[in-house]
Simulated assay, not measured.
Amino acid sequence: MVHYRTTITSVGPDVEELLESGMLILFADGAPPELAEVSVQHLVVDGPSDSAPLVGAEIRIGAVSARLTAIGDLAWKKVADIGHVVVNFNGASTAHRPGELSASEIDAAILAAALRPGAEIIIVA
């Protein structure tokens, strides 16, 4: 089941710096300039599904794949309401904040290389 499919439209100039700490910020197209600098902006193609994905669901960014390890209580609502979510690629079993997703670790350089306009981000069960 596809929970979410979106296409990257732009990558802010400060995204790579945040990736060094394992943090990826997604924001729907039209983010305010100060948020656009640190965000990957995107345009939704499919979803979000009515129900949040479960731990273990796959998140694919281009050809890079990880597994969700924790889902904050408010994360999926934020995805649905404003197309915004923070994904921490830290393998944590508990989301640090209610509006965040945690996923298995990915090397920052590999993740940065996958973040290109036109690439898809997909969350599937």
Results as ranks from 00 to 15, higher is better:
87 V>E: 05
37 E>G: 00
40 V>D: 04
48 P>Y: 11
6 T>G: 13
16 E>S: 10
50 D>C: 00
110 I>S: 12
68 L>V: 11
35 L>H: 00
33 P>A: 02
28 A>F: 08
58 E>V: 11
93 S>A: 10
86 V>L: 04
73 D>I: 06
18 L>W: 12
14 D>P: 03
16 E>Q: 09
80 A>H: 13
16 E>M: 01
118 G>F: 05
44 V>G: 07
15 V>A: 08
57 A>P: 09
98 P>H: 09
80 A>S: 15
15 V>Y: 05
81 D>K: 14
65 S>G: 07
119 A>I: 06
30 G>F: 13
109 A>I: 12
117 P>D: 14
23 M>V: 14
119 A>N: 14
26 L>N: 10
62 G>N: 10
119 A>H: 08
14 D>R: 15
77 K>Q: 13
88 N>S: 03
25 I>Y: 14
22 G>T: 01
96 H>I: 03
52 A>V: 07
74 L>W: 09
51 S>V: 04
99 G>K: 03
34 E>T: 01
112 A>T: 13
120 E>C: 06
60 R>E: 14
86 V>R: 04
114 A>Y: 06
75 A>H: 07
35 L>M: 02
101 L>F: 15
2 V>P: 07
23 M>Y: 01
74 L>N: 09
13 P>Q: 12
60 R>V: 02
26 L>R: 10
35 L>N: 00
73 D>S: 13
10 S>A: 15
33 P>S: 03
95 A>Y: 05
3 H>W: 04
77 K>V: 10
29 D>P: 06
66 A>I: 07
125 A>C: 05
92 A>K: 05
113 A>K: 13
82 I>L: 14
101 L>H: 07
78 K>H: 15
102 S>Q: 13
112 A>I: 12
97 R>V: 13
56 G>D: 09
117 P>M: 12
121 I>H: 12
21 S>T: 03
70 A>R: 02
93 S>C: 01
105 E>Q: 13
95 A>E: 07
8 I>M: 15
120 E>R: 12
28 A>V: 08
7 T>A: 15
39 S>E: 02
113 A>Q: 12
70 A>T: 01
5 R>W: 09
85 V>F: 08
3 H>T: 03
42 H>E: 08
123 I>P: 09
44 V>W: 01
18 L>D: 01
112 A>Y: 11
10 S>Q: 15
106 I>F: 15
63 A>T: 15
78 K>M: 15
91 G>D: 10
34 E>Y: 00
122 I>M: 12
22 G>M: 02
78 K>Q: 15
84 H>I: 11
54 L>K: 08
29 D>H: 08
117 P>K: 12
57 A>T: 08
44 V>L: 09
94 T>A: 09
70 A>I: 01
87 V>K: 02
46 D>E: 15
75 A>P: 07
16 E>L: 04
32 P>W: 04
55 V>G: 04
35 L>W: 00
13 P>C: 13
47 G>I: 07
24 L>A: 10
51 S>A: 09
34 E>F: 02
53 P>G: 06
36 A>P: 02
87 V>A: 05
36 A>E: 06
49 S>Y: 02
13 P>M: 11
55 V>Y: 04
11 V>Q: 14
7 T>F: 10
55 V>T: 10
69 T>S: 11
124 V>L: 07
76 W>R: 12
108 A>E: 06
96 H>V: 05
119 A>C: 08
23 M>G: 02
16 E>R: 11
81 D>G: 07
4 Y>I: 00
